[in-house]
Amino acid sequence: MNKLKSIFTYGILSIAAIVSLFPFAWMLISMTNKSSDISQGRLLPGSNLLENLRNLFESYNVGSALFNSFFIAIVATVLCLVVSSLAGYGFEIYRSKGKDIVFNILLLSMMIPFAALMVPLFRLFGDVSQVFPAFGIDTLYAVILPYVSTAFFIFFFRQNTKMFTKDLIEAGRIDGLSEIGIFFRIYMPSMKNTFAAAGIISFMNNWNNFLWPLVILQSPDVQTIPLLISNLGSGYSPDFGIIYTAIVIGTIPTALIFFFLQKYFVEGMTGSVKG
């Protein structure tokens, strides 16, 4: 019975892993092939990897794009985690009728497609440019600012706070901690798994973000990785070898972030406070 169960488990997970990873294998293989081989669907590794890498790094400013993407993703993620977790915690722990109304109104903000907000938002940053050019159009901060606080993450933190053992807060109050102290010293450490999940998702969203950076960034020195990849395919005869090389390079950081943060999904229960 048990053996059957584990065959089933490993069988299902292996199939899922193969289906999930196949396109990645294809990406890695394509990175080593010539453009014409890739468009004809070659499934075997080739010998063009170094040439693709050289072409990519010689013709495009990959280093600067990587820096910009890292800057945006890290700053936005850290700010977003702090601001959204504070709010999610505040909405659930200090629950009141008024706050519930505010919460529901905030949820409304994620229900409109971003395409509809783009023009007014661009105009807003046009105004910002007049006063604070450092946060205006064509700056990395203009990319970050709309993602510092999103209803999505507030909602996520609030739902997870529902599963947080409230007794710990009382314990903290008895210990004489301030309300903000409870948040930083008790809530944050015991919700590592939640922060890890939110961190992964936020980093990924910001790293892959395309539409907003596309319209708000103009000069080449603030270009991000997704914009660079989009431009690689811009020509009438695109070089798919270069494109796949860039795609692989652009995928590695998020994959690594996931790999490092995922350990919190098993450590949650053994965390110092809750155990």
């Binding site: 783009m118 023009v119 661009f122 046009g126 440019s129 159009i137 103009q218």
Partner: peptide, 16 residues
């Protein structure tokens, strides 16, 4: 897309 967003917002900021 960039041109439409920029021109319709009325800010010529960042336009080429």
């Amino acid at each position: 897309q960039k041109l439409n967003t920029g021109l319709s917002s009325g800010t010529m900021n960042g336009m080429p």
